[in-house]
Design a binder for these strands. Sequence first.
DNA 1: CGCGTTATTGATTAGTCTCAATTCAGGTGG
DNA 2: CCACCTGAATTGAGACTAATCAATAACGCG
Lengths: 242, 242
Amino acid sequence: MNMETMSLVKSAREGEWPGRCRDCEVRGTSICSSLSLAGLDDLSRIGRIVHVQPGQTLLWEGDEADLVGNVLDGILKISNMTGDGREQIVGLLFPSDFLGRPFGDMQQQSVTALTAATVCVFRRGAFDTFSGTHDGVERALLDRTLQELDRARRWMLLLGRMSAVERVASLVIELIERVGAPDGGAVILPLSRQQMADLLGLTIETVSRSMTKFERAGLIELPGGRRIALRDEQALRRIAAG
Amino acid sequence: MNMETMSLVKSAREGEWPGRCRDCEVRGTSICSSLSLAGLDDLSRIGRIVHVQPGQTLLWEGDEADLVGNVLDGILKISNMTGDGREQIVGLLFPSDFLGRPFGDMQQQSVTALTAATVCVFRRGAFDTFSGTHDGVERALLDRTLQELDRARRWMLLLGRMSAVERVASLVIELIERVGAPDGGAVILPLSRQQMADLLGLTIETVSRSMTKFERAGLIELPGGRRIALRDEQALRRIAAG
DNA sequence: CGCGTTATTGATTAGTCTCAATTCAGGTGG
DNA sequence: CCACCTGAATTGAGACTAATCAATAACGCG
């Protein structure tokens, strides 16, 4: 574990703990939903709340995997880098998602906050022990991991075989599904153009040009900033399907 | 389940069963290594051996996920397709790898044999029940799935951010690690150029040109057919690192 | 040995990246 | 409250990589 992460963990105070696990905002949707009340109490004994600033990295690719947790609030990215610094975002973490690599010795990806975020973290060793002694946790992890694997593989199709406009259309659809209310009103995208580019394996300019193309074709509106409104969802979906 | 798969399952005979699970060639390396002898016997009651020809598809993207199993012999691909037929291979299955999607209702990818292959298959429902009643299976699946997820995400970096030569170098390194003896002698690649291209998100021509480039640079030798010999592994690794 | 398939090589094109210049949005301080 | 300032986003022109189209060569198999 590096110094920065260390200080993050230390900075967590009992005082910041928002009640116990029983009152946790993601209790019903995170892996914790597999636990009994007694299990929740056991868990709250080994967990700590950590607040991270946008841009702060919780886990580093190549480091020892000694931290896992649940996202309570905010959005984080999971990313890989080439030797010379090119970055690919390989996953996003939203509230109630599980974070980190249980049962492994090395972190294969970095995890960095995109927005201010709150994470409930556990030391890997303590969590591994906990999951071994509480039924349902490993099964809940398995379900999530299988789902993540499906998602990652679907994204591989996008990265390997889709054109720029197809990629951008896919991302817009997915982001609006995942964060926004598609009521025709404008939604604020949670990602900058650079982050979208890092997810799509494109450059910022190509993402921007694709968005403009959609706007000129009447598929979306871009009222400025990161706001976006869907005008023709079906057409966008057709493009995204490839 | 489609007709082709159905007939495959039916075609499995008790007579083809090579002894019981106790004597299985991948017993020690597949998820079955988590089972007791009694567990193995239980498993052999619900499993069937299936032989597939190269090109035959065991599972179809979009179908109901009603078949899982272990690869005993051969190599299979996991792949996704766009609406208009572009293909991306998102994973390879080697002997002792687990195949299919447990605990899910829909197959997100197709699984197709690249070589003649032998697979030990289970009906999804029966396997799900089995894993729920035999300790260690879900945990073994979790370990494998986490590892697959790491591998998939690393591949996403390749697909999203690496150049053609970097991709090909990465694949050559990985294939030789996974199948071959790197003793300086020639190894036979298990993939055609088309399959390499589908794995790398490139065209067959670009793969071929990259290989020729490596040969001319003295990094590899291509004595014809699918044979390849490493001449300068370190240089190839440097290229693969990006 | 001849045929069909697979792989290589070449010429050209298309799509995306790169580099560069504006424009825009949002926050700060006067 | 507004002008300014900064980082983000857009737009444009040109360069480059990989795809496409096309032809030849090598391989594997009967």
